[in-house]
Design a protein around this nucleic acid. Sequence first.
RNA 1: AGCGGGGUGGAGCAGUCUGGUAGCUCGACGGUCUCAUAAGCCGUAGGUCGCGGGUUCAAAUCCCGCCCCCGCAACCA
Length: 498
Amino acid sequence: MAEQKKDFYITTSIPYVNAAPHIGFALELLEADVVARYHRTRGERVFFLTGTDEHGKKIQEAAEKEGATPQQYADTFSAQFHELGAALGITNDDFIRTSDEQRHIPVVQKVLQQLKSNGDIYKDKYEGRYCTGCEAFLREAEIADDGTCVIHERQPERIYEENYFFRFSKYAREVERMIREDVIRVVPAHRKKEMLNLFSEEGVRDVSISRPSATIPWGIAMPHDDSQTVYVWVDALLNYLSGAGFGTDVFAKRWPADIHIIGKDIARFHTMLWPAMLLALALPPPRAIFIHGHINVEGRKMSKSLGNVVGSDMLLQQFGKDAVRYLLCAEIPSDDDGDFSFARFHERYAADLQNGIGNLVSRVVTVGEKYPDVFGNITLDGAFSEALRTARTTYEEHIGNFQLHHALSAVTRLVKEANKLVDSTKLWELPSSDPAAAVRVMHDLAGVLFVVAELCAPFMPDTAEKIRGALGVGASETAGRYVVFTKPAQPLFPRLAP
RNA sequence: AGCGGGGUGGAGCAGUCUGGUAGCUCGACGGUCUCAUAAGCCGUAGGUCGCGGGUUCAAAUCCCGCCCCCGCAACCA
């Protein structure tokens, strides 16, 4: 009997389907994909989940405006996110939609029923001040001294609603402890600090988790009470359970999630409400929550109102899939906000990919191919230099800390060193002047290229294959393997039109 | 107001915890090879490390005060 080791379970957030995908979510998908691929190369079985969040008032209104049903509307956009994944080469194992009537909706109802039976959900009056300009309940900070809405300067309506509440207060302290003690690892550290502060600030009041169905019909009904619709956040968070097969036999080998990858905007739901819900369900909390930043565009926030949202299609067309994967991961710090600019992307494409990795492969392989008599016995058997071992260790440390941009700079450093080696030894002269030295140098260079391929693989899978192809080796085989230099038909990273 | 992050050569960053030649990438300028995608390599210029004070033999780094930028609203990853 083979021991049933748990899958490495990784998720992205599920984007709301009210707009076409932009590079921000593309990056989140990429970060998750890189981590997923990295774990697979280490021999782990990975379950990588993404999907779409489809309920709520905004979808309903948008659909009405277009004369479609909410489901049709959601279908259209959900498909776009699905296609985005395909275009980026994302290797998710599953795709969950919150409108899924077989897989998701029953799970939500089952979970809420359980919370209700346990007494963690109760019904109460909710009193709020609702601004018809905002179309939302106002928070304290949004109410001016005279009681008007600070944005619309009008008196909000007082609304009394019956809502279901979740006893967040009962679990908050325990969640806080788990975060503080890294039972739930919140990364990066500055986000952890930020989140811990929230527990003391807003405190630990119970959370309203339903709205009247009359107001929000497009959603999931509360169990045994279809006058109430489940709050979209509760609905959305539960995708991590429904997508992992909650209630079926596969669930046990997936839960808990090893890592949720999310944006800073939704950090509080994931660090506060979500673990509390899990505790209430007697399920272990996620092991890690990685919070990435947002992408600014040419120095400004990317937003619909500013009209500067960058889509990923255009990028893919300009640079190609692997390059986009590299550029986004290298240029935007994975643990903080970053800035996107076309000029920067072109610079980096030229420097790191075209003149860096691509050109190195080209020049080394050309020489190798030209002198088959001299380089016929080059092998990859393990005699990797100190530099290679250091590069790999550094890379692994950075991936472990979700600093993907730093992991990639370990690769570019390696490429630089290899270029220096080619020049300082005058590799191209060696086969005739000093064949023994030529073999030694080429052996090192082949080793570098092989490791470059290995380290690039999670980020640029096709490129990694091309590099291995140029060496005539496969991904897994190294020991005693003879290198057969074969210059690629096309440059790895062609020069771009200016 | 409070909380968090940041202010280092033209641009983007590392270094700050564990004081002691200020480093990397891109860009600019000059040189050089010719295996390579007119790529590579070498070199040069360019920094009062936000400001003021303090501790110290010595501070980008530690302490105090101050200034400026960003986030903690919304659309939204």
